[in-house]
Design a protein around this nucleic acid. Structure first.
Length: 682
DNA sequence: GGGGTGGTAAACACGC
DNA sequence: CGCGTGTTTACCACCC
């Protein structure tokens, strides 16, 4: 393209180096700080709404995890896995406006923190919503639509999360031992679940338990009779038997209970405890799950038993196992609890399907590409089709920014593969399958609009623990790894280590991806090999990297802009709005919006990744993001033979100062600006 | 259909 | 010779 001037030798100060961790800490801190004080929500939003939103918030994470885990369950071995790679939900932040990353929720934050964070964020969101409705009348119509849309998305997320959490409880979905219980409680919000479980444990009548179990998620949808799930009979029976079972379970019911329980397959995970897995949903025997089972247990975390309603303290795994075998053996109560859990899951699935439908209708109405109603299948049905999402983007018009990822999730035909909700699928025309292996394919998102930095940061913990393929290209990952390093240079081995350290997925199939890494390093001009004292290191030529990017972004910022303006950023100029588009979601989550005083904090947190990706703002057509700071460039162009050009962008950051503080604009996100009036090219 | 891009596989070279 | 590192080619798939 026409950006060929000459401006190499841009020496940079390897100053930054705390990317992912800092970002994750951001949300972490934010969540913990703001704590449950969400009383500042104005009167327009009822507590019920808050509660509801909170639940929705939680669900999102659940769904992703669920889908991933579910797909994982279907792929027993490494080789199989290879054919059914799980494309991950890329940016939770992008997926939906008010989204919290699952990782953060479930892994980073402690249960209380999660609770607090959820509340706070919901409050924040609502506040923004109100702001929107009050101050931006010009976008009212679209805004309201979008608001409804967002809420729908959130609702979907909620369902998903609840679903996953429930699965985890059942032991169907192995996961980090922490926060499962609490997360679930959050998802169910008003501690319904906990109470339910206690009741199920024998304190209360089954009728009540049933009522609660059903009421949990059906509250928003009264008509679930159309559900594809034959919830009725067995479920009800189970609950009834459950109720009676505690004190005086009729023989018949007891028999039923055991019959039911026998429908499960006992899976010995290696420990001496017995895990129950529904037939056909046996836990993956991949090395990963084994590892997890070796040192942890889905029902054990934070030193206590996570069995629904239990919370017994166990000093160590051994004690827990003992406890599990003693207290939660295969008996009436445990069986009943499992049934209840099943019921809950089913209900959630039902509602998820419904909400999915609704969402689709909404999207169609909003002129997003009318796609055929694709019923949301059970996540567990995710068969390793071997192909990733196929052109998820098809569901969305080119001109419109893809709706929050989570939204698409339900819409995405699961039959297409485990990748399901990969956010990449949404806002990126994710490359679907390649050889059945879920390539990182995240082409567009990666190149045009997806902030790998922010996404990685936000989902750091997630990728670290979930054996899912990161939806980033190798090139972007390599680049990120290098830029994240103190010296902005890494040896091949260090890159390898980064991959394995950051992504559980890369802890296996090493031959494949390592080869890919080497291939990418050699192939892409943006990676420069530099002879070092201790050997060769790889650096990133940002200019070259940027060159790969098309001058324009995919999708029009229109919708996004509206969304943003609706959120109170209408005063920002178009480019800023566009830039914020992607981050609008995380934005909403940002405590700084709620408490401007915390803005600076945010800034700090965002710091690194922002910096590392700052460069991404410079693209071939020379458009630069206002937030870009030249000094932040750290590529070593000097190594490159061809004179690369780097548009000087001395634009004062102050321009964005106010915004920037509250709006972490991870590099890639700013790609959105590329299309916008940013006539500060030289 | 072609070009660009990305992922995977594989062959090969080179140095330790 | 084996291994790690790099390079290169080929093939496939997707998007524009």
């Amino acid at each position: 393209m026409m950006v060929e001037s000459a401006s190499e030798t841009i020496r940079t100060t390897p100053s930054n180096q705390n990317g992912v961790s800092s970002l994750s800490s951001q949300s972490d801190g934010g969540g913990g700080r703001e704590g449950g004080s969400n009383g500042d929500t104005n009167g327009e939003i009822s507590p019920v709404d808050l509660l509801h939103l909170q639940q929705q918030q939680a669900l999102q994470a659940a769904r992703q995890f669920l889908l991933q885990q579910a797909s994982g369950l279907n792929s027993p071995g490494g080789n199989e896995v290879k054919q059914s790679p799980v494309q991950v939900p890329v940016s939770m932040a992008m997926m939906s406006p008010q989204m919290i990353t699952p990782q953060q929720m479930q892994q980073i934050l402690s249960p209380p923190q999660l609770q607090a964070l959820l509340q706070q964020q919901q409050a924040l969101m609502l506040q923004q919503v109100n702001t929107h409705t009050h101050t931006h009348i010009h976008t009212k119509q679209l805004g309201s639509k979008q608001l409804a849309f967002q809420q729908q998305l959130i609702q979907m997320q909620q369902l998903q999360q609840q679903h996953i959490l429930n699965l985890q409880r059942q032991g169907l979905v192995p996961m980090q031992p922490t926060a499962t219980m609490q997360s679930l409680q959050q998802a169910m919000c008003p501690s319904d679940l906990q109470q339910l479980w206690k009741e199920v444990s024998g304190v209360q009548s089954s009728e009540e338990a049933l009522k609660q179990a059903e009421g949990l998620d059906l509250s928003t949808n009264s008509s679930n009779s159309t559900s594809a799930f034959p919830k009725a009979a067995s479920a009800h029976i189970s609950l009834h038997s459950l109720a009676n079972g505690q004190s005086h379970t009729p023989k018949r019911d007891r028999a039923r209970l055991f019959e039911w329980i026998s429908s499960f397959t006992k899976a010995d995970s290696g420990d001496d405890h017995v895990s129950l897995y529904p037939k056909g949903i046996l836990p993956s025997v991949s090395p990963h799950s084994h590892e997890e089972h070796a040192g942890s247990h889905p029902l054990y975390g934070h030193g206590e038993c996570k069995w629904p309603g239990c919370e017994a303290l166990c000093e160590d795994m051994g004690q827990f196992i003992k406890h599990l075998n003693n207290e939660h053996a295969l008996d009436d109560r445990s069986t009943a609890q499992c049934r209840v859990q099943m019921q809950v899951v089913q209900q959630l699935e039902i509602q998820l399907a419904k909400e999915s439908e609704r969402l689709q209708a909404m999207m169609a109405h909003l002129h997003m590409r009318p796609s055929e109603p694709k019923p949301f299948n059970q996540p567990l049905n995710l068969a390793s089709s071997g192909s990733l999402l196929k052109r998820d983007s098809d569901a969305y018009p080119e001109g419109l920014p893809h709706p929050p990822t989570s939204a698409a999730a339900p819409i995405t035909p699961l039959r297409q593969g485990p990748s399901v909700i990969s956010s990449s699928s949404l806002h990126s025309h994710s490359h679907s399958h390649t050889h059945g292996v879920g390539p990182i394919r995240r082409r567009n998102s990666d190149k045009y609009c997806t902030p790998i930095a922010s996404e990685l940061a936000q989902n750091c913990e997630f990728y670290k623990n979930a054996d899912v393929r990161p939806p980033f290209t190798y090139a972007s990952l390599i680049r990120h790894a290098i830029l994240e390093s103190p010296d902005r240079q890494l040896t091949l081995n260090e890159i390898y280590n980064w991959f394995t350290r950051k992504f559980a997925y890369f802890r296996r199939n090493t031959a494949t991806w390592k080869n890919a890494v080497r291939h990418n390093l050699s192939l892409h001009k943006c990676f420069v090999r530099v002879e070092n004292v201790k050997g060769a290191v790889w650096t990133v030529d940002e200019v070259e990297y940027q060159k790969r990017r098309p001058p324009k972004m995919t999708g029009s910022p229109t919708l996004v802009k509206n969304m943003i303006s609706g959120l109170g950023f209408g005063s920002l100029n178009a480019s800023y709005q566009a830039a914020l588009a992607e981050s609008s979601l995380s934005l909403l989550n940002s405590p700084s919006l709620l408490t401007p005083s915390a803005a600076s904090l945010n800034m700090l947190h965002v710091g690194h990744d922002d910096v590392s990706s700052t460069v991404e703002q410079v693209n071939s057509n020379g458009s630069c993001s206002p937030t870009l700071s030249p000094q932040q460039y750290s590529h070593q162009v000097h190594v490159k033979e061809e004179p690369t050009e780097l548009e000087e962008d001395s634009r004062p950051v102050s321009l964005l100062a106010g915004v920037t503080h509250s709006l972490p604009l991870p590099s890639d996100e700013r790609d959105l600006e590329e299309d916008l009036p940013t006539e500060e090219l030289e």
